[in-house]
């Protein structure tokens, strides 16, 4: 069993690297060096390039499952609103915040299509 240093819940920033004007044109894809597995509704991500690992809670895992390079951010947002009891604007803010964090950590890539 590996000894682990304290964990870090990644901070949210107000700056956005995702262009909100193009949510229907941006698709999200996991980075090639990242492997994920789901356990008990949560997802563990291992970044082979850095040796770091991350955990996603339930909704984070749902979002991650959509990051296959097929769904646009607008598609993912619609799927969340369809499945969860949430105000649309909050779901979008949370989705973009999470995506930006994952992009900043090198776990996700965004592509225009």
């Amino acid at each position: 069993m590996a000894d682990l240093a304290p964990t870090t819940t990644l901070s949210r920033t107000t700056g956005s690297s995702i262009d909100r004007a193009r949510l229907d044109r941006i698709v999200l894809r996991s980075s090639p060096d990242v492997q994920g597995t789901m356990m008990d509704g949560e997802t563990v991500l291992l970044d082979l390039s850095t040796g770091r690992y991350y955990t996603l809670n339930r909704l984070g895992s749902v979002i991650w499952e959509h990051c296959t390079g097929q769904s646009t951010i607008a598609d993912i947002h619609a799927a969340i609103c369809d499945r969860f009891e949430v105000v649309s604007s909050r779901a979008l803010d949370d989705l973009i915040d999470l995506a930006n964090e994952l992009i900043r950590e090198g776990l996700l890539q965004q592509e225009r299509r």
């Binding site: 990644l10 770091r52 984070g60 950590e105």
Partner: peptide
């Protein structure tokens, strides 16, 4: 029939630092 939706909780990612 209205579909019952799941309870929402903010998506969170936690980074773990290995020694």
């Amino acid at each position: 029939m209205e579909q019952k939706k799941e309870q929402y909780a903010q998506p969170v990612v936690v980074k773990h630092e290995l020694l």
